[in-house]
Write a protein that binds this DNA or RNA. Structure first.
Lengths: 148, 148
DNA sequence: GAGGAAGTGGGGAAAAGTGGGGAGGGATGT
DNA sequence: ACATCCCTCCCCACTTTTCCCCACTTCCTC
């Protein structure tokens, strides 16, 4: 179970150090095999491979001659890369993915249950602003009864 | 299983270097025999020959006097070429196909499960813009329950 | 404050990407 | 039929990227 947001920096070689407290869980869930891909909201997704496989199968089953499902396939499967951590526990983020998500030096690793999202600093701030801007319209259908 | 997007360049002779991490899988799936053809979305398709054969048979079985199936046949089968990689792992892209897909120097090789798509730089960027433009209408019929 | 673990940066070897020369073979035209 | 041209493919050389390893700094723990 992954949760928690961490501000991390990507070094000049595109490497992202995963916080040590998550490494054990990643190794256990994925045997070290992870998949890094693009999210339509313009962040990246980091999945342990076993959690990613069923999603990939589902997406690939969609008809590729239909415009909209082709777009999803191209984004999710098209950008996906198998990755492992290097000996210092760092994840290599390919230049294509860095560009897609608009990564600068500073990024955020955000736990989301069975996977992580990785946001550029600017993108993450926008998410927060978007939440504040919702005001009373905060809760989406199906979650109206959420109490905190 | 092919996945991942790579920005590659086509040299002056029309050669495209396939990333080394895909070469093993291509050799295994196709014994080196590949088929390169045109996709109606104006990109190219790269199939291992064994995966292409059933698609070709299916397309060819369509009635050729019906306008719509004739168009598909002409595009998919008409543009298809058998290719192999050269000794440096490069794929030769015929001028006809380069022109069809509007290839300049920079192209994208995009894994799509059992095959690849190859996009011009401009075409690939348009795909991404199209996805962002979808907003909340992201998921096509049949994929509404996709969770990321 | 000392020791250890984690984050950070960079050097260097090896592999992969890139580009071009030139031989071989098939097509074209005289 | 022969010469020429063009296309293809193989090989070599150069550049860039990737990966592995080591060293330094910082922070937390004891």
């Amino acid at each position: 179970m992954f949760q928690g947001a961490a501000a991390l920096s990507i070094d000049a070689k595109g490497r992202l150090a995963i916080p040590a407290r998550h490494r054990g869980a990643l190794a256990a869930a994925a045997d070290g095999q992870m998949v890094l891909t693009a999210h339509p909201h313009r962040c990246l997704l980091l999945y342990p491979e076993p959690a990613w496989a069923p999603i990939r199968e589902k997406v690939l089953a969609a008809p590729s001659l239909q415009q909209q499902s082709a777009l999803i396939k191209r984004l999710l499967v098209g950008f996906a890369r198998e990755e492992t951590l290097d000996s210092a526990g760092r994840l290599m983020v390919a230049p294509e993915l860095r560009e897609f998500a608009g990564f600068d030096k500073q990024v955020w690793l955000v736990g989301q249950g069975d996977h992580f999202e990785i946001w550029s600093d600017a993108g993450w701030r926008k998410q927060q602003e978007a939440i504040f801007a919702l005001g009373d319209q905060l809760l989406p259908p199906g979650l109206e009864d959420l109490a905190l």
